[in-house]
Design a protein around this nucleic acid. Structure first.
Lengths: 342, 342
DNA sequence: CCCGTCGACGCAATCGTTTGTAGTATCGTG
DNA sequence: CACGATACTACAAACGATTGCGTCGACGGG
């Protein structure tokens, strides 16, 4: 009467037992019910505006049709597209997205994950995995499917969707080299996140491929992916190597930190010292100068993470191990031939 | 054995009936159970690592301990802080956040809301309300609590948490006037969102308070809160009034559009034409010139929205109607005295 | 004509809680 | 000593769906 109609109401309206109504309304079992009664049930359901109660169904079938997504820092614009991408494919299949913010803290992240497991999410998308995998052990032991996004773990048995950092950094280095740069430095991300070491290794590899110096002293690690640490790291770098003509940053914000350092040295970003960013977050094209950056397909990343997760849940074939998404280079004004080469 | 322990397991372990166990574990009813048996039950629960099954509980008590949040565009960095603020207070009370992306489309937003209602969320936070309130009618009729955030509706019976646009725009206008500007224009947001007309009205009011011209021709409406429309609108404005010395934009991205227009006219942002933004999204301080903008406390906005929603759910007192959060002005390099005044 | 088969449906248990009510000691009181 | 109040606790019915199994009639073959 008052609340939403239940299956019992539909059954009564159609003159059948609730079990028959249930079977009729369930696509998987509707074949066992007589076509004519099926029609009656469906019409009754339609007429009453029946919607199955997700909790009741979930209690019985042991699934919530919801998947959890844990993010290290919701305020980071980087994650907007990832969330959007995931959400868009999940709704398609009737799933909902539960968002958890981890506020940068590893311990808090574990609490968030635990919370989601208790809520019986059907799957987990983690953007927070640090290189050790305490979190995954937790969830994995519960037998709940997990996909990593934008991060990987050392033990590569968990499906992960990440940008191809090797290719991305190579794009940046190749671009700089082709402009004539030889003395190139790297502002690395923290070594305890996978992108930090990944991009650092990629930088070394790319440099060596060109026969250029990639010793430890042309690399400086920033404490965290933020402007300030980027400024500090680049300052250290340029202090050691005043003749450096280009910097490959492991992250856009770090690159913006480089901007600041370079300016404070009285030099000009681009003509004097080239800088490349990584990720290509919004508004980079409006900086002065507009920043050349490696663009990572974040939305696609979220989408692919979601669909492999759905595949895992459905038990169908899915891409095991880490899947690399190929980035592109967006050339703007922050890179130019070195003065010496002109 | 295999799965998580149920209440029945706890009861058996403690040697009591499941109903007793239930009452013991529920803070609200634990007073009716003998202190000693209570202890036994609690210890048994502890030992087994018992966690109540949210679906079973929800089925019985008719609440999901989850609240839905609908966002017009997840990729807009504006909403990160709002989400973060809401999430932080919700987890505090054991609620989870269900995120829905509305992709800018009104019809899609309604589908998302409907979806959440079917999922029996305990409350809804809407950032998508357009000025007419078809959406709210839907949800309101279901008797589910709703709070609006960053947007209001014309009929003000729904609690809403918004920035005080009147005060914010006044901050910007006063600042410009005190710098010596007299011919000030406004790039308005779309008139079908509440912030669009609200800020426009506020602009007119602030200008008239200073005895300045605020006729329709010094105002140009942008089609959408994006850089491109902002560039177009400001171009139209400066075309009509070449002598204009300052522009108050209804949004940061619109203001960045103004930057573009001003540069393409061969002028300099700040010295030639001052520009103010609205919201103060990240990275604005790194633009050239750094943008003066009205800062809206978005994180607080999300937090307050969440707590009033919780109050509504709990049935306790809450601030009805729209609550205004006072903004501040962050002065940077995009505003300066007009050339003529120097 | 009887019996096995099969298609279509109803019955009832079940998922894990919460909660109204009934029951049973224990105690105080007249 | 009996009787009602008191304080716990057990029983069982929900909440709304899914699902193994039993039932029932029709039908066909021997």
């Amino acid at each position: 009467m008052n609340g939403r109609p239940t299956l019992k109401d539909v059954a009564r309206e159609a003159g059948v037992h609730v079990s028959t109504a249930s079977r009729a309304l369930n696509p998987a079992t509707s074949s066992v019910v007589n076509p004519e009664t099926l029609k009656r049930v469906v019409e009754a359901a339609e007429r009453l505006g029946y919607r199955p109660h997700p909790l009741a169904r979930g209690l019985r079938t042991n699934q919530t049709m919801s998947i959890g997504m844990v993010i290290p820092d919701v305020e980071n614009p980087l994650f907007g597209p990832i969330v959007a991408g995931a959400e868009s494919v999940l709704v398609e299949d009737g799933y909902s997205l539960l968002i958890g913010n981890a506020d940068r803290g590893v311990e808090h992240a574990e609490a968030v994950i635990e919370d989601m497991i208790e809520r019986h999410v059907d799957g987990l998308i983690l953007a927070t995995a640090t290189r050790d995998d305490g979190q995954m052990a937790m969830a994995g032991s519960q037998g709940i499917p997990i996909v990593l996004v934008n991060r990987t773990v050392d033990k590569g048995d968990v499906p992960a969707i990440v940008g191809d950092d090797h290719a991305g950094i190579a794009l940046a280095v190749d671009h700089l080299v082709s402009l004539g740069h030889r003395r190139i430095g790297h502002v690395a991300g923290p070594s305890w996140v996978s992108t930090g070491i990944g991009r650092r290794d990629a930088f070394v590899a790319a440099m060596e491929r060109h026969g250029l110096d990639a010793g430890p002293d042309v690399i400086e690690e920033a404490e965290w992916y933020q402007v300030e640490p980027g400024a500090n790291a680049s300052a250290a770098l340029l202090d050691r190597h005043p003749d450096m003509t280009a910097i490959v940053a492991a992250n856009d914000l770090l690159a913006l930190g480089c901007y600041r350092t370079i300016r404070s040295l009285g030099k000009e970003v681009g003509p004097d010292i080239s800088v490349t960013g990584y990720n290509d977050i919004p508004l980079l094209d409006l900086m002065q100068p507009p920043m050349t950056a490696v663009r990572v397909p974040h939305r696609q990343m979220g989408a692919e993470a979601a669909s492999t997760l759905l595949a895992m849940i459905a038990g169908t074939e899915y891409h095991k191990g880490t899947k690399l998404l190929t980035p592109t280079l967006v050339v703007r004004g922050s890179t130019a031939p070195p003065r010496s080469a002109v």
